[in-house]
Design a protein around this nucleic acid. Structure first.
Lengths: 202, 202
DNA sequence: CCGTTTCCATATCGAGCGGTATATAATCAA
DNA sequence: TTGATTATATACCGCTCGATATGGAAACGG
């Protein structure tokens, strides 16, 4: 996981880039892009301001790299969920994976994507658009998965796939809001159980 | 709607307090508490900074008054929804009322409560707690309404009322997130239609 | 040893933040 | 008219923001 090509010349870096990025992710995750100040970031990362700029460019570039890390490490369950054999299994795994991701005892609660798209001033608009775009990509994958489920017969023909996807997305987003507001894992579990009882088809 | 007891002495105010407050609400609604700067507020309200402080106290007091206005004027549909004869009617009216409130063509999209509770730095924590508390009050009313629905028989005995309430809240919050992200009224309508198909009972 | 390169530490930049001091303008009671 | 009272207008306060300039410390090839 170490950065591969450390330049041989010059003074070597005194911190681990990956660990610093992971620390930055936690700060963004709990405070949002604009809520995370450079003081917050450098303190959590254990480095100074010029080191941060030398290693990551600027705050926006750092956020994008943190977002990449978030997707690959924290949202791995999304890809796995899509591989479930039925639409119902996809939805349930998405909901439960999201719940675990958003109520971990050792990481911030809530969802980085939701926080970043809601809590975003107009000067960081491009950050917001970036986050929304990534969300749309995942949404399209979900729509296609449900279309397939219809073909395969585990989703009733009468279901509006777009509506169902928005419905599931709303549950995921609402769960993120509630997790950020202090809901416990048990709270969310009851919500998911109730949701799954209503899920169409079998 | 004019402020009743205008003091008879001294130079009279040159602006309407209610209109200024309504303008401030729109700014908070679209940008959140911290995202709304005093320049944003004064410009939208058409008054200067000292006038704002003389009339409203400070930014936090202004926000609380805007929050009161939001509840009484924009969330009036909540109380009406609770008076619906069935649990299903309550849910549907809440969802559709929320949709209309969040996708008005002449007002900001999304929900002031969701924006304010998600997009809130740590120095404005008391604002966040205030918003969350108001949300909890409404949630309790919803739980009681669904308990009553069980007694009255229009909600199956097997339903977990807390879970159902969290479920409905999640839909409302998710809808706010999507509306803030640019979802159209038609998008949300499909989501609500799909949700209502799944609603338990009647 | 040297010169080069890269990194770290401190101090600082200009801009925007929430909030206010000061002076002037407008209205009332007398 | 005069004095008291209140609103407005301008300029400013201390502070934090993201971002950098500067100078020295640590590694390398020669």
């Amino acid at each position: 996981m170490e950065t591969v090509a450390t330049p041989v010349k010059g003074r070597p870096r005194e911190f681990c880039v990956d660990m610093a990025l992971a620390a930055a992710l936690r700060v963004f995750w709990s405070k949002g892009y604009e809520g995370a100040s450079l003081n917050d970031l450098t303190e959590a990362m254990g480095i100074t301001r010029p080191s941060l700029y030398a290693a990551f460019g600027n705050k926006e570039a750092l956020f994008r790299k943190a977002l990449d890390l978030y997707e690959t490490e924290k949202l791995a369950y999304v890809g796995k969920s899509l591989a479930e054999p039925t639409a119902r299994g996809v939805a349930e795994h998405l909901l439960r994976g999201s719940m675990e991701n958003q109520t971990s005892t050792c990481e911030p609660h809530g969802c980085l994507g939701v926080i970043s798209s809601v809590a975003c001033g107009e000067e960081a608009e491009c950050i917001r658009l970036e986050v929304l775009e990534r969300g749309k990509v995942a949404r399209r994958a979900l729509v296609e998965r449900f279309e397939r489920a219809k073909v395969e017969g585990d989703l009733p023909e009468s279901v509006d796939v777009e509506g169902l996807t928005s419905f599931l997305y709303a549950l995921l987003q609402g769960m993120a809001v509630q997790a950020g507001a202090g809901a416990t894992r048990a709270d969310l579990e009851r919500m998911i159980d109730t949701s799954m009882i209503m899920w169409p088809s079998k």
